[in-house]
Design a protein around this nucleic acid. Sequence first.
DNA 1: AAATAGTTTGCAGTGACTGCAAGTTCGCGC
DNA 2: GCGCGAACTTGCAGTCACTGCAAACTATTT
Lengths: 222, 222
Amino acid sequence: MVGVMQTEDVAAGGRRERKKRETRLALAAAALRLAVEKGPDNVTVEEISEAADVSVRTFFNYFPHKEHAILGRDPEDLERSLTRLREAPPEQSPLTMLRVLVNQALADFGDNAGDAKQRFELIGRSPALLAQFVLLSAEDERALSAALAERMGEPPTSLKPALLVGTVTTAVRVAAEKQKLAGEHEVPDLTALVDQAFALLADGLDPAYDKDVLSRDQEGQS
Amino acid sequence: MVGVMQTEDVAAGGRRERKKRETRLALAAAALRLAVEKGPDNVTVEEISEAADVSVRTFFNYFPHKEHAILGRDPEDLERSLTRLREAPPEQSPLTMLRVLVNQALADFGDNAGDAKQRFELIGRSPALLAQFVLLSAEDERALSAALAERMGEPPTSLKPALLVGTVTTAVRVAAEKQKLAGEHEVPDLTALVDQAFALLADGLDPAYDKDVLSRDQEGQS
DNA sequence: AAATAGTTTGCAGTGACTGCAAGTTCGCGC
DNA sequence: GCGCGAACTTGCAGTCACTGCAAACTATTT
């Protein structure tokens, strides 16, 4: 039952709670620092625990994987996005609202400058980290889809909200990849790329799409 | 230099090549069977190796992870899709062609009935498998994006081809998820869901998108 | 048949992660 | 302040994934 106890709010009172939060933070910080210093795949849990001055066993009381500690995700980030989504002006169309959401998220991202960017870098360098990141993101996506469905007044089984969240995520991801790929020269500015992607999503990716191809093309099997 | 030697074609001659292919196949088959029988997370490499009658060490000469063996991906699948993409009728618009591609892939999927479906099931039950699957898919996506960019006569840095491939992948994924979620009753047919998703992508996800929100909304920072 | 190159295997080692049980600390009512 | 139970930490033992290395084996070539 470890970790189940209902901690009511963020700044809960007792010394216990405080210490817990400090330990978790110390572990995440140590994990991130060491990952940056030695490369994400050359860090051992032992080192991290040592740096945070707890036992290895305790490390695993806080994080299920080494990767979770390095990613050090703040559950508040998702909460904030969900709140923003729910409180967005009702007259905004879904994609418009998502554009604002993304922009706010990117702004947050730029704020806590060090950590987020370093983590982002690391993710690009370690498949293990990427894998965990994707898994966590998938959960977020589900939550966002559900919230969006509600906002749009659609049943949770509806395709459209999920598709919107999914494609928007993809758009941001692709934009980020392209920017990284472009390297140093000609830095095209993430916001501009994301704008471009959103515009494409909004207007349609392919005006010439022939929705009846399949009725005609029944012989194309290998 | 293990595994570097240039094996010319699929059905290469020597007994050596044949045995190698057999061993790989036996391992993948055993891995899949055991994963289905005992649950994907309760299989050990030792069991798999035993079932395929090779040493554990040999297992790792064939697969980098347990998960790779279970997923048992055939590199030919990607090749086939790439070929199809390149040989598609040039008059087909990108999304139209991708729709055909997806349909062919799904048809293949239905063909080798057992394996693909079982693997798909497993992926849904094991985060570790899902993670590896996503990683492999990401590689495929990159290859497909590059091929599509070429077909569209765009530079490989161009956003649009990558966005197309990414969103289409997302569309299929979302459709599959929704179908699974719908459960037994009212099975909405994957093809229909995919059609719906493609139509949305083609026509635009949100006709009311306001591409100038950001210019106006500059005060929405946490 | 001997040389050669490719493959298998055992062995030893590192490191992630888990359950368990004993010890420590904290919060709380008395 | 005391003591008690709950929460937390820790060490220990154990399982399992995965790696490098070197010896043994086997197919292929000459």
